[in-house]
Design a protein around this nucleic acid. Structure first.
Lengths: 184, 184
DNA sequence: GAGTCTATATATAACAC
DNA sequence: TGTGTTATATATAGACT
């Protein structure tokens, strides 16, 4: 039932308050856990959605102030180096997510091509199916080259001999079903 | 694989650091989400387990300071009323958990007795089984009284008449199987 | 507001790289 | 250290009480 809500301001005040209370509790628990598990100084201040409310000051107003003062007394160098501003945080996050997206896309592409490759091994008339565009064919060719190289290397290993000339007659044993798109 | 780790200081420094990094990331995400979903002012300062590290100051040192100042300017009354100190937080938490424990125990007890009750309806020789102690028998008797009362009420409802004298010959239809221990 | 319930979404511990 | 993976543990949205 926890519909994946979008990460944006909740319009209805009632729902917003409910979510605030639920999540505030969760965050306080997390803070307490981190503090206990790692024995690190932590503090947080959280204002409520209703402006008249007093903020939560965790673990206590005094300690919050102490931590702030402690921070202020750090040498400038340390203060400035790693300041994680909200903006920076977002930028870092975006960068990481985009990087991951790239990796995943690449992986997907590779899986797709590998799947095509294996299908081709089983079905030689794939040319007629009009499902391959130029890019696919190029990647397919590239993958074929890679597979050839792998085969060559494996043969070398099995023979335990110096590299013979590149042309070898290999018996491609058509793989039956691709369990996970990663056969040779 | 996430073995349920105990909520206490992690002894091995390596594991502690790993956990710290993982959880710090999680908490920052939560803070960001709460901030976005509810549009409330939030800030947090988190020092690392290595004393030389600079703390994370979120969302930014300036804003943290502003929030602190804002807080300091609140009228004393508001400042003092709801100060959630770490200790208070723990006390509240303990109180709530204990309360819940109580509720659950009560519920368990009731389920157990109801189960016994239903078994008795099916099997009259339960006296021989030596599985009931005095408390059980007392609770059982109490439950029987309650059930009787429920039956009386239901009969009254069905008759739509003024309450007849308490003695009624009721036909106890022995319930077949207790689906969830909550039959009459 | 606070607690219950339940289906899902997330967080995350331990491990392999 | 950081990432990917996977099996679990938690968090939590939504509907009720």
């Amino acid at each position: 039932m926890p519909k994946k809500i979008k990460l944006e301001l909740i319009p209805e005040m009632a729902a917003r308050k409910a979510t605030f209370n639920r999540r505030k509790k969760g965050i306080m628990k997390k803070l307490h856990e981190l503090h206990t598990l790692c024995d690190v100084p932590i503090c947080a201040v959280i204002y409520g959605p209703c402006k008249e409310e007093e903020p939560i000051v965790w673990p206590s107003p005094l300690e919050v102030e102490n931590m702030i003062n402690l921070y202020k007394n750090l040498p400038e160098i340390q203060q400035c180096r790693k300041k994680v501003t909200h903006e920076e945080y977002l930028k870092q996050r975006i960068a990481r997510v985009e990087e991951k997206l790239k990796r995943v896309r690449k992986k997907n592409r590779k899986l797709k091509i590998t799947k095509l490759f294996n299908e081709c091994l089983k079905n030689k008339d794939f040319h007629d199916q009009n499902i391959l565009d130029v890019t696919d064919l190029k990647d397919l060719s590239k993958l074929a080259d890679e597979k050839m190289k792998l085969i060559d290397e494996r043969i070398e290993t099995l023979m335990g001999n110096p590299p013979p000339p590149p042309q070898i007659g290999t018996s491609r044993s058509a793989a039956a079903g691709e369990p996970n798109g990663e056969e040779i």
